[in-house]
Design a protein around this nucleic acid. Structure first.
Lengths: 198, 198
DNA sequence: TCACACATGTAACACGTTACATGATTTG
DNA sequence: CAAATCATGTAACGTGTTACATGTGTGA
């Protein structure tokens, strides 16, 4: 049940509607958890049922009404309790890794293209995280920030996100080099270069 | 449907029983995908139904019989086709990141403990991946390996795994330093050090 | 003798994805 | 005038987790 707590944690940043949360949890943006809008609407209803979040319907003249959610004391307690539980180990689940693993029996060119696409994504996310981090620092040095800011959680996760994407870039780059070397035409005789031995 | 293809990719390494695959896909060992035994049994049945894997029941005298699965030509085709599809972007889903994000409203000591545990895990996995990689290289340099080995997929994913764990170590270490600094007793007045301002 | 490895599975549930549906307003 | 944004949701399905059940053989 980590989605619950991810939602609660997101509400620490301020009250929000399902729609706003959906943006924070978008795969392309999320730096500590990602989820689809439907997951959020479902979970928010449950959280409200369980009294961990409060709901206020905000009537808007020119927009559909929105339900603005906020942490209740019970929600805050649940979140605190969550931080004391052993986090479950992360499971590797990346399609691209499966494609790379299977490249020997697959289409090397297609995998190369996928690696290049991943590289672009990583670069974009890295840039986004760096910007976010700079906004948080607001001119201060890290040491200074740590001494003066009122939250470190978001700073640590955004730093983690940036480091993760940097690592992604390094790996993708290296993998592409090795694959290029592997599929190089001088590597093995004639037509065997790209289509392998089965 | 990436589990399917992960299973097919695993069978490239050789025929295996559900039990053997379960070990390869174990969270603590897996370097390109992880899955529980139940997922595998379920998926293997489906793959067999769909003719992507073949089954041979091996009778054993002192052991329960086992069903040994192998790739069929159709399975190989499906795997190849999979390598040409756009991989879906990875979704961030790590309990520890949620805990870190929420540390400002949570138990900082407990999160520290969790970070330390993650550091140990990362170190262990890194050591495992390094060993695996050394076994593959078998004394050869990387350049040499790429020229002579008959598969690169597993080498690339194990390299990725190792790099990923190294990055994990770097982040955890840094996060712990920053958190230690943050929770340091001289930081803010008295009892406010660990329990925050709400 | 106790725990672990081998080997298989069922049932139930929780979580995540995809497709679809609705309808107003703002921006280009 | 079309597309994007705001704002909500349902239905159906696919994937992943947890708990349980069964039984033999090996090693400390």
């Amino acid at each position: 049940m980590a989605l619950r707590h991810a939602v609660l944690a997101a509400l620490l940043e301020g009250d929000a509607s399902g729609y706003q949360l959906a943006k924070r949890f978008d795969v392309g943006v999320a730096n500590f958890w990602s989820a689809t809008p439907q997951q959020l609407y479902r979970e928010l209803d449950r959280l409200a049922d369980d009294g961990l979040v409060g709901v206020v319907v905000v009537e808007q003249q020119r927009r559909p009404n929105k339900r603005v959610f906020s942490l209740t004391d019970a929600g805050r307690d649940a979140l605190r309790a969550f931080t004391t539980e052993a986090p479950r180990p992360v499971a590797m689940r990346d399609d691209l890794l499966v494609q790379v693993q299977a490249v020997d029996a697959g289409d090397a060119d297609a995998v190369m293209t996928a690696l290049a696409a991943r590289r672009e994504r990583a670069q974009a996310k890295l840039a986004r995280y760096d910007r976010l981090r700079d906004q948080m620092l607001d001119g201060r040095s890290e040491a200074d920030y740590v001494r003066t800011a009122d939250r470190i959680g978001p700073y640590l996760t955004v730093t983690g996100g940036a480091m993760y994407e940097q690592q992604n870039l390094r790996w993708v780059t290296r993998a592409m080099e090795i694959m290029a070397e592997w599929t190089a035409p001088d590597r093995r005789s004639g037509s065997e270069a790209r289509t392998l031995r089965w």
